[in-house]
Design a protein around this nucleic acid. Structure first.
Lengths: 224, 224
DNA sequence: CGCGGCTTTGATGTTCATCAAGTAAAGTGG
DNA sequence: CCACTTTACTTGATGAACATCAAAGCCGCG
């Protein structure tokens, strides 16, 4: 289960400027009163308006069919929760921690109240939401045009470049989940990882990945 | 080119309740001052905050690669323009009329002003935007899982059920564009249409389509 | 220790993209 | 208005990419 931890004042939060800069002093105080900060462990499900301070979560949809479909992996500063808040679709976005994560929550009703009162804040939300769904949709469109080697290159470079900032990292998800994220079967994920290993692009030991030839991997990603 | 036509007062617009019910009298007057209504002919490009009153438009993205990718076809009451307004992504959504269309425009700056002033309106926009991007994303995910016969069934039923409300209709787009919309090659669009024709599901004469066996088509759509 | 889940590799089959080629329809210029 | 060009449409043949099936090793867990 998740655990609530001591929660510092929003006023001094390093992320204040990212989203809440348009709030009045009074509104910020309101947020401060109605927030909580919690630690989430791997596998914990997250259900509210959230703000990821540390760690890694996955955003996914559970389709009518058996298996989930991962939409996005998000880390620090990303604001993926947005998509799930106003959504009243048939089937809903879920968020789960895939690494121990520290998350700042704000009561959803409080957020809605502030939206009503502060149009500038609302506009900022609109822009962020637009940007996020753009990004998600673009990725999806690109993914479906490209073939499997491209997808693996893409996702490996995402982990090394955007998430861990290192050529060496521990993959936080299973190979099956990796497949769910980039729309391919587990077997093919493994097959292409093996290819890359044989070609000297990767070094793999269980969950530990090291990209040996970044340039080549980028080349694979650039050329469709 | 598009032509501006006489534009009635928003106060009495049948669509007022759909989006603008939360506006104050004063704000509505502002909208009224800053709107224009225009006729668009097939092929005309649309670039502003819009509100489709009649006709049919397509929303698409032009990718880095050669061919456009159609995201959605929209008719009456749909509010697809939303996605393109706040978007500052690398490549942008475009809207083009595929049938002669009548569209109500509102100056973008006016809209932004009202968002800032009227939080309730902003919230309504947030909800609509969420719902639209949900829908678009869901469709895309479903499409990419299913095979070609499913996709054709889906799109034919969309035209007959959601757009024209008739089993007989003129397809407003080319077979190539149909392919762009549901992610398949022109040749395969034609091939499967032919199959359906041979199976007695469809009657096709050029652009004129008639669905003879709706139940069977729905069955194809239900079973992956 | 044995069960189930994750991982890996190989063999096989299906689906679909691609190539090719020909017909019909729709613009275009003389 | 007709010859010409271009664009849309259609069908068939081929091959590549990928899903599926099968089987075996590995690991953690009750």
């Amino acid at each position: 289960m998740s655990e609530t931890i001591k929660s510092p004042n929003c006023e001094f939060c390093v992320y204040k400027s990212y989203l809440f800069e348009s709030l009045t002093r009074e509104e910020l105080a309101l947020v401060n009163l109605n927030k909580s900060e919690r630690l989430f462990h791997e596998g914990d499900e997250i259900k509210e308006f959230l703000y990821l301070k540390d760690g890694l979560v996955k955003l996914f949809k559970e389709g009518k069919s058996r298996h989930e479909h991962i939409i996005s992996i998000a880390k620090l500063l990303d604001f993926i929760g947005l998509l799930s808040i106003f959504s009243n679709a048939n089937y809903i976005y879920s968020i789960t921690a895939i690494e121990d994560s520290s998350v700042c929550f704000i009561d959803l009703e409080t957020i809605k109240l502030i939206i009503k009162r502060n149009g500038k804040f609302a506009q900022s939300l609109l822009e962020k939401m637009s940007s996020i769904s753009d990004q998600v949709l673009d990725t999806r469109i690109e993914l479906n045009k490209k073939q499997l080697r491209w997808r693996i290159a893409y996702i490996l470079l995402m982990f090394s470049g955007q998430i861990y900032n290192s050529n060496k990292f521990d993959l936080p998800i299973s190979r099956k989940e990796l497949g769910d994220l980039i729309d391919m079967r587990t077997e093919n994920v493994i097959r292409i990882l093996s290819e890359f290993r044989k070609d000297g692009i990767l070094k793999i030991e269980g969950k530990t990945f090291e990209i040996l030839d970044v340039e080549l991997l980028e080349k694979i990603r650039e050329l469709g």
